[in-house]
Amino acid sequence: MSPTVNLSTGERRPLLRPGTSEVAPTADDIVLSTQHVSFFYGDVQALSDISLDVHRQEITALIGPSGCGKTTFLRCLNRLNDMVPRTRLEGQVLFDGEDLYAKSVRPIDIRRRIGMVFQRANPFPKSIYENVAIAPRANGQRGNLDDLVEESLRRAALWDEVKDKLKSSAFDLSGGQQQRLCIARAIAVEPEVLLMDEPASALDPVATQAIEDLMQDLKRDYTIVIVTHNMQQAARTSDRTAFFTVDQRPEGRVGVLVEYDDTNTIFTNPKDPRTEDYVTGRFG
């Protein structure tokens, strides 16, 4: 599919939603595509030659042992690693076919369209309302944001729990609620892609279930890339799964992509023995 979004102007095509008269997304509809991406922290290589396509309105899970670079990879997808000094990316990341790392592209424009939810809930030390409203307002939205705040909280399945205490501190919420607040906050910017870095790793099973249900719901409108340590979570929630591992090389430990396929295939019929060892729990 040809690129229809101009990255530098931020002009976007209407979202293709199921049930509308527009063409339904197909398996070939690739939102993000990395091509031979290698990543370096100073002189230390963290990722080597990662090529992977993220499909529209699917959940793509990145799994693998600790230190395999899956979080680093995720952060390459919205240029968050730009904030870390002395880092370097080789290869290409294409977003709707355009080079994400082109000189003319501003990282902040990217991050407004590719949102991020972090491993540990990191609400701002402000009210629940402000947490959701602050980014849209900072990004230039004027006027009454009540509707946007309500809509975002509803979509994050948090509205009913907080609608009577919007003015109280975000820290009054439980861990699971805080994480859903962070999802609401990300949704409020109206991104096209949501990157989630182990969003449920610090949560109990009930809160985890809530986040997973939410992801299925969000999938209808958003493309989700999720890093997870939890293989059951990947198997339960994702459409495709990428298995990363650590490659011992003479120059050090480097993250590599072993196998990328339908989640079903990865978990039931993987091609690479390393994947099989990992998903069956023999390693990692």
């Binding site: 991020m116 540990r120 990191n122 701002f124 030390p125 602050i134 900072a138 990004n139 990300a186």
Partner: peptide, 20 residues
């Protein structure tokens, strides 16, 4: 985590400094 959270929402450096 706060800075990255704000950056992840596409806020500019200046606004992150002032607001966050």
């Amino acid at each position: 985590a706060l800075r990255e959270g704000a950056a992840g929402l596409g806020m500019t450096e200046r606004i992150i400094l002032w607001k966050i």
